[in-house]
């Protein structure tokens, strides 16, 4: 188990390094960063001064090494737009995004897994069809539309929940539902498919032959085997939620990291974009690593790899 974990960790570090190199080279994708910063009216002397000030005149690898070294210590440089340390900027926004992501994925898992199990226990029953309907809806409804509908109903008509902001926990209810409902169909369908397959397995019959009750058979013997691919999917979706909840964050005016990324791209604020890419990729890497560990715990056969 330890060897497995170390191998996965080594792999994760390699992926992180690759991503850091890619995100650093973004700086040069849009041409000369110094002239881009200086603007159109700048003289060549101004550009040269900026180039020296920000160290763009040094060899690429030295710049990358320097940037990476600082980034590892949490220093991502200054935001061109806010003139604040990028790390501070991200830290302020990230707490909201993380809270939203955790709530969203929890909502998705808590609704999807029981529904998937129930659907698999009685395929083609009323509950299976209802679950299918719910998941097709979730897949088909665009988040921005669903979010707006919720605001119209619960904020404007019923006046139960605040439509925007991030002041209290009540602000997070609707964004959580919108974000979670987006992730829920895939998890639900995967749980159902996994359970359907596992419930036909010989060891399920063995469990029944031992005299185990239906709940025990479902949740102890079947679900543990069926949920392995679900964990991997949930990890990817969690990474996606943390990086890609831009739409939901803008609808509900939750100024999180996704919204910051969107703004910074528009403002050509490269240090911020670089740092955000690295942070988002870092989330993916961490969650993939954690899901690998979780799967190895769930299924001992994986531990050998």
């Amino acid at each position: 188990m330890l060897t497995f974990a170390l191998k996965r960790l080594g792999l994760a570090v390699l992926v992180a390094l690759t991503v850091s190199a890619v995100s650093f080279s973004l700086l040069y994708l849009s041409g000369d960063p110094a002239s881009a910063m200086a603007g159109e009216s700048a003289t060549s002397a101004d550009i040269e001064a900026l180039r020296r000030l920000y160290g763009f005149d040094r060899p690429f690898l030295v710049q990358y090494g320097d940037w990476l070294f600082n980034a590892l210590q949490g220093d991502f440089g200054q935001s061109y737009y806010f003139k604040l340390p990028v790390s501070q900027l991200i830290a302020d926004r990230l707490s909201i995004t993380m809270l939203l992501g955790v709530c969203g994925i929890s909502f998705a898992l808590v609704t999807a897994i029981p529904l998937g199990v129930a659907a698999a226990v009685r395929p083609n029953s009323f509950i299976d069809r209802t679950a299918l309907f719910i998941s097709v809806m979730g897949q088909a409804l665009p988040s921005f539309w669903f979010g707006l509908v919720l605001i119209v109903i619960f904020s404007i008509q019923l006046n139960w929940l605040p439509p925007s902001g991030s002041g209290s926990w009540r602000n997070f209810i609707m964004p959580t539902v919108v974000l979670g409902y987006y992730a829920m169909p895939a998890i639900m369908r995967l749980t159902r498919a996994g359970m359907l397959e596992v419930l036909n397995a010989d060891y399920i019959r063995t469990a029944r032959a031992k005299g185990a009750g239906e709940w025990r058979v479902m949740f102890k013997h079947a679900l543990r085997n069926a949920v392995v691919p679900v964990v991997s999917l949930a990890a990817v979706q969690m990474g996606f939620m943390l990086g890609g909840s831009i739409v939901v964050e803008s609808i509900f005016a939750l100024h999180g990291a996704g919204y910051l990324a969107w703004e910074s791209i528009g403002r050509n604020d490269l240090p911020t974009v670089q740092a955000l890419i690295l942070v988002f990729a870092g989330f993916y890497i961490v969650f993939t690593f954690l899901s690998d560990l979780a799967n190895a715990w769930l299924d001992p056969r994986i531990r050998v790899g």
């Binding site: 060891y203 013997h221 769930l298 056969r301």
Partner: peptide, 8 residues
């Protein structure tokens, strides 16, 4: 016997 025990 190969499949009658729970792998987990």
């Amino acid at each position: 016997p190969m499949t009658s025990l729970n792998p987990a």
